[in-house]
Design a protein around this nucleic acid. Structure first.
Lengths: 143, 143
DNA sequence: AGCAAAGTGGGGATAAGTGGGGAAAAATAG
DNA sequence: CTATTTTTCCCCACTTATCCCCACTTTGCT
């Protein structure tokens, strides 16, 4: 399970260090995808497989499920961790998440999220300002 | 398992390099056919066999399922990977997909798709605009 | 303060991507 | 049936990108 928030830099080759705490769970490989709110999601291979199977099971005769599966599956990239504990983020994913130099790696229980640092700060302050509203909505969900 | 999105060029002889990550699964040969949304589908021989059987089992009485089966079955072409990891795309398939010079090879779990680069970009931006409800769809999948 | 472990950057070897030439095979005409 | 042309396939070579390894820096702990 992934918990915590870490700041790391992305070098010129697009490499990003995975925090030590998360490495052991990802040595068998990870899958990085376009996530929501302009960040990237990182899943273990097993977690990803479950998701991909559900996506590929969507009827391919229907235009919108075809489109959805294409975005998710083609947008994904499976990556390996090098000897220094880093992964290479493909250029198109960095561009999608607007990751320049400094990135945030956050653990969200069953996945990691990778954010551009500035975007993360912005998102956090906005969310904190709205936190009472969000709390009310969570209440509606029975939490 | 095919995932990810790769850009490759088609040379004057109609040859297209298969991304390294996909080659091992296709060394035994592949089948390229006309796909949906003006792209080409690529299956392993085994996957193609399963699909072809399902297609030929479609109700013969319905005009549109007949047309669909014809599109895919009649357009299919058996291709081999050369020593450089490339396949030759027949002229009629390149014309069908509008592939000029730059092509995109996308992994969609159990098949590859080959797109003309410009067509792919266009399709993606249009789809992204229409799927602000990605979150909802992910929710439906239980993610 | 010193040691160890993690983070970061870069250089060199190796593999992948791409284009083109030539041999073998096939097709067509004489 | 043979000769010439065309097409297909295989191999070579150059360029570019990827991967692997080494080394320095920083951080945290004893």
């Amino acid at each position: 399970m992934f918990i915590g928030e870490y700041q790391h830099s992305v070098d010129e080759k697009g490499r990003l260090a995975i925090p030590v705490k998360f490495r052991r769970q990802l040595v068998k490989g990870a899958v990085v995808t376009r996530g929501l709110d302009s960040c990237l999601f990182v899943y273990t291979r097993e977690e990803w497989k479950k998701l991909a199977e559900r996506l590929s099971a969507l009827p391919f005769s229907q235009a919108n499920s075809r489109a959805f599966a294409r975005l998710m599956l083609a947008g994904a990239m499976d990556v390996d961790i090098d000897a220094q504990g880093r992964v290479i983020l493909p250029e198109y994913l960095r561009r999608y998440a607007g990751i320049a130099k400094e990135a945030i790696v956050a653990g969200l229980y069953d996945r990691l999220e990778i954010w551009d640092q500035a975007a993360w700060e912005k998102y956090k302050t906005e969310t904190e300002r709205n936190s009472t509203d969000i709390a009310e909505k969570l209440g509606e969900l029975g939490v």
